[in-house]
Design a protein around this nucleic acid. Sequence first.
DNA 1: ATACGACGGTTTTTT
DNA 2: ACCGTCGTAT
Length: 695
Amino acid sequence: MAVVADRGERYWLDELNDEQRAAATHTGGPLLILAGAGTGKTTTLCARVAWLVAEGVPSERILLLTFTRRASREMLQRARGLVPASARVLGGTFHSVAHRLVRRHAAALGLPGGFGVLDAGDAADVLDLLREEAGHAKSRTRFPKKGTLLDIYSRTVNAQLPLSGVIAEHFPWVEDHREAISALFREYTTRKKALGVVDLDDLLLMWRALARDEVIGPRLASSFDHVLIDEYQDVNGLQVDLAQALAGFGCDITVVGDDFQAIYGFRSASAGHILDFPEQFPGTRVVTLERNYRSTQPVLDAANELAAQATRAFPKRLRADRPGGVRPAVIHVRDQGAEAEAVADRILEARENGSDLRDQAVLARTSHDSDQLELELLRRKIPYVKYGGLKYLEAAHVKDFVALLRLADNGGDEIAWFRVLQLVEGLGPASARKAMAVMAGAPRDLAESPLDEMGEGRLAAVPDRLAAWSEAREVIPSGARASADAVIAALVVARDEQRAGPRAEGLREVLAPLVRARYPDGAIRVQDLDQLVAAAHQVGDPRQFVAELVLDPPQSSADLAQPPHLDEDYLTLSTIHSAKGLEWDHVHVLAVYDGNFPACMSAGTSEQIDEERRLLYVGMTRARRTLSMYVPVRYHHRPRGIDDAHGYGKPSRFLTKAVLACCDVTRLPDDPLNPRGAPIVTARRLSVSPDSLFD
DNA sequence: ATACGACGGTTTTTT
DNA sequence: ACCGTCGTAT
């Protein structure tokens, strides 16, 4: 053994409990760490990385795969804190590692060297283009929209299941269009090839192709001695294939996860994969972590009861390490307005009792569940940051900016052209198409073929596209020409600038006035662009900048900015999906009614219902000290709250007697079932629903 | 013919 | 927020 540290240097092993230490120091054969919520999963994984390095495994021969960049950054940082020699551990998300490998083997995969990566929005735009070309946009029968198409496509690819089955099971309402969708997906594959681009799913497909190749596969696997995979309950079939290919060629494999926290079924993940791990990887040692360092026992009692409802699961029962605690609250409220008030009241109360806003969070099933609450927070001047829901990259002005960056890099990107041309006032879809047709008909360089081995030829083709502008401008309305000329001129300058920062800066200048003119809040949006420009300065290569933006999308503009000041105090609002792995002293879960937990469209199969239950479980187990769950009795059908359509709901079916027995149930005095503060009756449960009429 | 504003309707969750 | 439709202005 090259490095034998003495006991004192390995103090961090002594700080682990027996199970954690067993996991961290396991040798020989596959390892499955079943880490319940709050049981020190990250600590254990970091300790294992540190231990491997301390035992002499070269750090660059360890691969750590996570689902988010944040997770990999955090773990690598902590591992380095334990053992500085672990500095060179290769860590990243499945997609970013895939990107690195696909880049290195682009030629073998038939990709141009400078291939672009489509984010979900771009992929949907390509599908939309094909949808339009095939005449589905105009057809009488309602054809699925681009977002749905992408969902169907992605699900099919990631689950590696036949399209017909995916449609039958998850998208039955598009059954009539099955053949057209199938044809469209084939065209999508062809079109991506022609454009020289890959989407996020392709990255995984291509990695798998490399990993399974009899020549390249063993070489990839031989670069690593150990592969560690975080959040294994969230892997899909494609990712299991990757793990198996790596293990098959000799890597030692460690996976960590909690089947109770599998909540990405809609992304083709399946808790089945972690349940099946011991069979798929013979000789697996299973270590279960049940000692919870996060919450107090009353919160865990309720969570354990909820988990006990699951049909198939590894048996686990969380035990609190900390003593004391208060029972979770189940609070009935009149409607979402009353819910907002109740939440705000309790948050302010907690703040007065010494809890900062940053120690509190409000979690919801969907991002718009907190719409009313946001108004209330605004009214009471309670600062908050919202995670999940609309993302930064999806904002129109950011997409515009990225489209400009893409165009400066690849003049053949028709999706980007279509978007950019329409930025100009007076220039709409029809003129954009005409201009694009003229530019596409311009003299071509042979090197423009996207299948060109070197791929470098694509740069040489760009001048042709832009040079054809003098003809293309003739086919657009005369009033729009001057403004369009300015955009093209900026693109010409940007194309000749190879540094990401200055290139982004030039494009910002031409976009800023257009953004200011288009949106009432244009000035704020321009600030977002400034942050992107600042981020571009940090990255040398413009292509790399766009790829990183796609692979690791900033959650909000705050992500790009400098770390927020420590003295700023703000509340966290988040979807439960985005809250995974996080914790707060005080957690509020909104809208725990049947129809939201489970969501009415996810109540079809028992698989789906199980996942909805786990979602509530994840929400509940985020709480360190107090947990409050709100049940609005009357809720709006329309999330926007424009009309007053509403229904009378029941509490979530997951709040069974056994779960409620662990909670304090409260009705507010203005509850419609209990007007004017009459004596509170909790024993009876009345359900009012006209649903039986609607057959 | 084209662009654009107004308006009504909408199967979540995201690497 | 987006999407499709329709009426109006250019």
